[in-house]
Amino acid sequence: MSNSCSCHAQLTPDHLAEVDRILESYRGQPGSLIQVLHKAQNVIGYLPREVQVKVAEKLDVPLTRVYGVVSFYSLFTTKPKGRHKIHVCAGTACYVRGANQLLNKLEEDLQVKPGDTTEDGKFSVDVVRCLGACGLGPVVTVDDDVYGRVHTGKLADILSKYDKE
């Protein structure tokens, strides 16, 4: 899988040291699991196995429980995210106005399925439910930029703005 290489590339010793620092203040507190996972993901961008093992060890929670929480909440991800995060809204309004075509087009152009990251680590694609901008549907966001009334023809233009880095 393309993920196996990019995830190690993204998990640095600095990240792990920062996670260790966070965990130190929660040692032996199983009740803080979600909070700790949230903080760890904020540091690294995702929750690789290695980090979940650390959390399990320090909080004294079985690893099965840690992964149970990580796999339950869509907020948590075990896959590294791209440098730019594309979100396609598939709420009712966006859906009926062609969100699926956008996802198909992205899959075709970037060779990436929703939830995954491109091989070069540049883009990750996720589906979200209702961004609250139904009048602009279908809506796509890239990082903090919001694009309304997107159609397949506009996607290449939008993505090209992120070519520079």
Binding site: T64, Y67, S71
Partner: peptide
């Protein structure tokens, strides 16, 4: 021992080891 626990969510829920 906690070798198994519920993982994932909804229809995909499975009782399994971590990962």
């Amino acid at each position: 021992v906690s070798a198994i626990a519920p993982q994932e969510r909804g229809f995909k829920t499975i009782v399994a080891p971590a990962f």
